[in-house]
Design a protein around this nucleic acid. Structure first.
Lengths: 337, 337
DNA sequence: CTGTTAGCGCCTTCAG
DNA sequence: CTGAAGGCGCTAACAG
């Protein structure tokens, strides 16, 4: 691959002149400039960003560590990050951590070797191991945390307001007149799910109700988990008239279980989810849910990170972005008995 | 950040010795080795991969350009790539091209500046513009093409066998006894969709049938497109008894439309899709579809690319990976009339 | 077994 | 307006 030196020779100028025409970093006579540009075109010269980075100590690359890019919400977040980064000429290095601190640490180590300018970390529920925590808090790389705090890592954070999500969905069910409301939650230790559950409880409490322990079922945070949980709830002696599933996947699973149990939605059971995946709008029936601004979260995280990279000394930033209730056809007033 | 030189000074040795203990690239006396390692630990020294790459001309980074990482199939593919790359110590630079040749070219240019070792390109349906094509065929970077050929770029290719997918799904419907089979297809120019449609036609032809033009509806390749197409089909004077949607999103949309039209699935209408998204198994009813080995495709693409990077001169490789029919509850024999 | 040296490709003073 | 020279951090001959 052509180098600047070769370009310089062929154009009969010094490398510094070539450098300056490329970067417009000092005045160059018009004819020299044109000649150099012509040679660059002919030779198909493309500057070597590594050599450049070695000098500047800036790679214009940011690392992104997510638990799993196939989760719809992660994918959306990732897209927000990539969009915001591209807009200012940065590239993204993607790492799937799979909630495995070992793997995450290996990734991060590699990213640091490659001297990323910053890191967007979506940690997931797993606790960071010692190595990962050390790398993160060593301050070698600016880090912004997405949606999940990481114990011992005190840095900028932008997340979703999961508590509000649970609250909004549940209040919607209450406003429809439901009183016997179940919650289908993910694994108990998972922070996002726990917050949504807490929001659910708060809404219930405001209505003078408490969540019946029999109506709270934990399961895996996917369709299968939602399906199994709903089936259990529908088998109860006194089944709920409405159900809040902590995320859309679980809600979709619940819808599936209801249909298989011959329970009509929303006539006999209202179901609300949270996320607003693309397919939720076309579920049977179309799912009422709480849309999350995942793309925006990615964008804002990136903008924040870029500010830190530029040395912005502002105090630690922490926000949670609210979701929006989207009422569709899976919820309705309870049937008269 | 600590440099090798600093480590060398502090350990009282030369940088080359430090280099050699790090890379185990020549014998070093045990005590010196230990001393160096100790200093590395103390100082938290992490080698600078850029400086290293400047010498080797290898970055251990591969670029991945996809149309949009939020599409479920892309996400799965991407994960396959990342997994395979991580397994051999490579990192991934992710770019979303959004079917925009301009943006793709900008990304590729940036990746070349950063001297990626290779590129996995998922081109999408859009035609490459001049700049992009030039960059791709200039041979500066080994490229493997995923699923979509690119005009003028003659290189390794691994895709999905979309034709077989259409064939399998349609033959399944035929074997159930359907004769009036509709096809819900994506945009006419889209290669994957067209191939699935062709497979559908082939299965029909083998059964001595032809696809009734009225029963072929093109639309956007998402839930909305599938929904609208199905609604149109169900409004026909002689509606189909079965329907093959070229992908799961469209199939899910079709399911939605059927329910809204009061058409029971599978009693009055069988629906088959193609992809096997995670949610397909929990659709109402659970969707019969053709699962695609997207993850495997990503893995194989990466392995192939890595071979090319290592200079493997084997002739151009071209494969299409077959999908697998997954029969669930959205298809059944046609109702007697 | 260890150190010295010469770059990798680029930017950036410092001179002219 | 232009060129020469030094150095970013690391590796790999080449000496000893």
């Amino acid at each position: 691959m052509a180098t600047m030196k070769q370009v310089a020779e062929r154009a009969g100028v010094s490398t510094s002149t070539v450098s300056h025409v490329i970067n417009k970093t000092r005045a160059v006579s018009e004819d020299v400039r044109e000649r150099v540009l012509a040679v660059i075109g002919e030779m198909g010269y493309i500057p070597n960003a590594m050599a450049r980075s070695l000098k500047n100590d800036k790679t214009r690359t940011i690392g992104v560590s997510v638990p799993d890019n196939t989760h719809a919400a992660m994918a959306e977040l990732l897209r927000g990050i990539e969009d915001a980064a591209f807009a200012v000429g940065y590239n993204i290095m993607l790492c799937n951590g799979y909630e495995d601190p070992q793997r995450q640490a290996a990734h991060l180590r590699s990213l640091i070797e490659k001297r990323i300018d910053g890191l967007v970390l979506v940690a997931g529920a797993a606790r960071a191991n010692e190595e990962l925590a050390a790398l993160l808090s060593s301050g070698r790389v600016p880090v912004v945390l997405a949606d999940h705090a990481v114990a011992g890592v005190d840095t900028d954070f932008i997340g979703l307001d999961h508590e509000a999500t649970g609250y909004l969905a549940t209040r919607h069910l209450l406003e429809l007149g439901h009183r016997r409301i179940a919650c289908v939650a993910g694994p108990a230790h998972e922070p996002a799910g726990s917050a949504r559950l807490a929001g659910c409880r708060r809404a219930l409490a405001e209505a003078g109700l408490a969540l019946d322990p029999k109506l709270l079922v934990h399961g895996s945070a996917d369709c299968q988990g939602g399906h199994d949980a709903a089936r259990r709830l529908l088998g109860l002696d006194a089944p709920p008239s409405a159900l809040f599933a902590c995320n859309d996947l679980m809600a979709l699973g619940a819808l599936c279980a209801a249909r298989e149990a011959g329970v009509a939605v929303p006539a006999a059971l209202s179901v609300a989810g949270g996320d607003d995946l693309g397919v939720a709008a076309f579920a049977t029936p179309r799912l009422t849910t709480v849309a999350q601004p995942s793309h925006e979260m990615g964008r804002r995280l990136t903008e924040l990170l870029l500010q830190r990279i530029q040395g912005d000394p502002a105090p630690r930033h922490q926000t949670r972005l609210g979701g929006q209730l989207v009422v569709r056809h899976s919820t309705a007033a309870p049937q008269a008995r």
